[in-house]
Design a protein around this nucleic acid. Structure first.
Lengths: 359, 359
DNA sequence: TGCTAGCACTCCTATCCTTCGAGTGCTAAT
DNA sequence: ATTAGCACTCGAAGGATAGGAGTGCTAGCA
């Protein structure tokens, strides 16, 4: 059933006023905005309450939006807000000089999202499984060589290997061709014990080094598929009146800080609406989020990779503003990572700049 | 002036009781512990108050330790606490399997410290300035090569360079010898414009690539000197009664989350006592920490590098337990990073572990 | 001289009660 | 259909009051 225009107007006003003030909204205040008497408003609000869009904290308080009310607001009522020029400029500015590795990028995008929205935020990128494209072995001295691995996603990883015995230049070269022959184009699952064993048999006197390099390879592939994630601004919660109760705040902050908990729920969350997903209060899967809301936007990170940024906050979240900001940042990221300047996608543009390994 | 034995006992009891309960301590409760009447305790406490070791929140409340009282407690009174076997085991366990890169290690040590102590914690390592030990250039294809840089601290960094024009294998080789001749053993400051310019003159037709590689080199050296830092468990604050006030909690959490603020104060903090530094309330430099305490321990990260781990909490911090845990973790880190197994320090040690593990 | 018992006093905390007012629902009038 | 009016509800805020933990002081005792 469709709501009358006036009901929509009233619901919108209630939601927006409550978002702004965190105070239940009474009929008198609305009367001025809507342009009819408070009694009329009361009748309408009473019906909206009956339909489940509004709630009363207690009999003689004003109305507060229910989750269903927020949902309707998000889906149909709210206006797509524009960013101010200052905000857009701030975001562009921050994004402009990003060319660190992806973990750090995610941290920084999380931070950016959090400061722009004033809510705790996260950023992550989903990577497809990778394989090794080529191996290079650099002979350093009798006890030391470096393995450099170029992955299909164009990530480069390396490891300095220090041995308790000595090797010759030729042995390292042998190892190199062996690995380039057997371990390229192979995904993590495909590195089986039997593959390692057969390589060892072929390795001659460098037998003992195969396992070391193989395990490093596995490590690289594992790291390559791990979704890097950044969480930032958890303390923002404390400025929201709904988290004046330190126990509630504590519970939610713990949940947020544990990236893995958050991450495991994200992909299963709601439907996309203009590239945005909003889950409101009880719609969330995690018990800890039952009276919070999550807004997330996805972006294209090139190479067919998808990434997500999002914020967590009270159900009384400023959906309109958050949605606008997330969309803007997500679009910026897409442009930056998968745009025409970066035909080879995220890893080329970013990770390749620098990958580091301490050994 | 020296305190009488009994005064020490009373002060100790007050501090420890207040640490445990967060409630001002009255004379009656102490009478049982100390073994004399409450009136005697009152006289003694009155004197301790006069001396500035105790404070009264109001006339008819019990006593609370003053910063000076905590200071005395920390310096002279508190017993060096032992960890339970379970705690020691938990720490050893966590430390055992650390061989990631240093940023991640710091994050994880921060996390470990936080969960062990139940306070927000940080971990950082100070690095000495680095130089390049050697360059390697890997020719990938006509438009692509990889630069691999081995630093004096044994960090290896690399960068895939993708060109809009093509190069030959020999050109890359030339570039390699050029950089190995001119840019090794050079610290960040020593890479001047004139050095770059003279290298460019010597570079012949690879002229245009010098700047690219040089700027990557600078990037590496800059990154190498940055002190990696991990902060964890900020939300732990919220379980402390002194931070039931969300505004206070918010202020401190913001301060903590901004690693750089924290870091800039750390080195200037108090004296070492058994490898520990404790700064209590007003002793802290930062305004935000004026009624918090910071306990930090330093560890040896090999190569003459020093690292710090620490926790932040209310002045009513469990100094004894925190000190024990920090010392233990710091000792473990020192052993792991600079122990006899790892004569060449952090970077090497990790590799050795790795190779031992797999052979 | 040092300790203890007793007592009057202080002042915080918790609790109850009252008041106040914003907001409601209903009814009757337009 | 809308509005004005009115009685009613119920939480929030603001005292007052009682209770009690703790103090300082004084006087008596080993």
């Amino acid at each position: 059933m469709e709501l009358s225009e006036r009901k929509k107007k009233i619901l919108t006003a209630v939601v927006e006023s409550y978002i702004a003030t965190a105070e239940p909204v009474g009929s008198k205040a609305l009367a001025q905005v809507i342009g009819c008497s408070s009694a009329t408003i009361r009748n309408e609000m009473s019906e909206l309450t009956g339909m489940g869009y509004l709630e009363q904290p207690h009999t003689s308080a004003g109305r507060v939006p229910s989750p269903a009310g927020y949902r309707l607001y998000v889906n149909e009522l709210m206006e797509r807000q524009k960013l101010t020029e200052a905000e857009a400029a701030a975001i562009n500015d921050k994004l402009a000089k990003k060319d660190a590795q992806i973990e750090q990028l995610m941290d920084e995008v999380g931070q950016l999202t959090s400061t722009m929205t004033q809510y705790p935020a996260y950023a992550l990128a989903m990577k497809p499984p990778a394989a090794v494209k080529r191996f290079d072995f650099i002979y350093v001295d009798a006890n030391t060589f470096i393995v450099v691995v170029l992955l299909t996603d164009n990530t480069v990883k390396n490891k300095l290997i220090h041995l308790p015995f000595s090797v010759h230049q030729e042995q390292v070269t042998t190892l190199s061709s062996l690995f380039n022959a057997n371990f390229t184009g192979v995904t993590e699952q495909e590195i089986t014990d039997s593959l390692i064993r057969s390589t060892e048999r072929a390795a001659g006197d460098t037998y003992g080094l195969v396992a070391v390099v193989a395990s490093f390879t596995i490590e690289c592939l594992t790291a390559a598929k791990a979704a890097p994630m950044g969480v930032a601004g958890a303390s923002q919660l404390l400025s929201q009146p709904e988290f004046r109760d330190p126990d509630k705040a504590h519970a939610l902050m713990n949940f947020i800080s544990d990236g893995s908990r958050l991450m495991s729920d994200l992909p299963r969350m709601g439907e996309e609406h203009n590239g945005l997903r909003v889950t409101i209060g009880p719609e969330n899967l995690a018990e800890e989020l039952k009276d919070s809301s999550v807004v997330m936007a996805s972006y294209d990170a090139g190479d067919g990779m998808r990434g997500y940024i999002g914020v967590v906050g009270p159900t009384r979240m400023d959906y309109s503003s958050v949605a606008a900001k997330l969309s803007y940042i997500a679009a910026g990221l897409s442009r930056m990572l998968a745009g025409p300047d970066a035909p080879e996608g995220l890893n080329n543009k970013l990770v390749l700049k620098e990958s580091e390994h301490h050994e």
